[in-house]
Design a protein around this nucleic acid. Sequence first.
DNA 1: TATTGTTATACTCTATAACTATA
DNA 2: TATAGTTATAGAGTATAACAATA
Lengths: 141, 141
Amino acid sequence: MPENIDEVGAELRRAAVRLYSRFRSERVEGEVSEEALLVLITLDKQGGMSLSDLAAAAKVTLGSISQTVRRLEQLAYITKSRDTEDRRKVVFALTEQGQQASTASRRHRQDWLNARLGELTAAERADLLRIAPLLLRIADS
Amino acid sequence: MPENIDEVGAELRRAAVRLYSRFRSERVEGEVSEEALLVLITLDKQGGMSLSDLAAAAKVTLGSISQTVRRLEQLAYITKSRDTEDRRKVVFALTEQGQQASTASRRHRQDWLNARLGELTAAERADLLRIAPLLLRIADS
DNA sequence: TATTGTTATACTCTATAACTATA
DNA sequence: TATAGTTATAGAGTATAACAATA
């Protein structure tokens, strides 16, 4: 039975808020935000996505993602072109600079997090890896 | 050994960002933000805190928390008074309205999350409860 | 008409820096 | 001088709503 379900929820909420806040604060001058980085990573894995594709992947509105990509475009981290078949659509691609920025940001942030994770036991790390998909499932439900 | 430590980190980061985003989006008209709610909950558990206390509890700067409490004060959810011993300090307390708003917000958000958690197995919930402190430890390290 | 994007507006979070008041 | 707090400024994320372009 959902014995302590309220407790689980409260702990989870607190953990997510704090963790997000902490991740964000690890960002240094010149690095893009968490959300923008996820866009770069998404485009790295699968180029040629439209604005709608990116909005769906990030689970935000079109208006929201539109501003995020505008900033990334101003930084010359991504390029925007028109879809030749359906000219209402735009197609985004990662630039060489965007690629580099993405890699550098990821490395820097992983360095910090890896140090934290390294302080855990192997069992705890295994727990985390097992739980992460669960968290994503909840977030995307 | 940190075999898949990068993977753990990447998954964790993605989960935290998504989860935070999802929690935030569950907020409805008239409810305070996640961050403001944490302030209300903090004051509920331990009244009479100063601005510095609240900033430390939330792990944000004084300037940042100052604006959060200003909004909460405008909503009449908290009251601010001067410390009688050290008049540089302020003391915050939850009002009856703040108490109610906090309870209502928590209940509403828990309803949503509980529904999600209810879909998990008891073992998965136990995992989450065990892992949450780990996440907080990482966030606060 | 329906779909794809863009832009304007508004609100929140956050940090830093300059400033006030009190110790 | 040092400490507690406030406020101004700036940048980012988000949503909604009004708008433009294309299908």
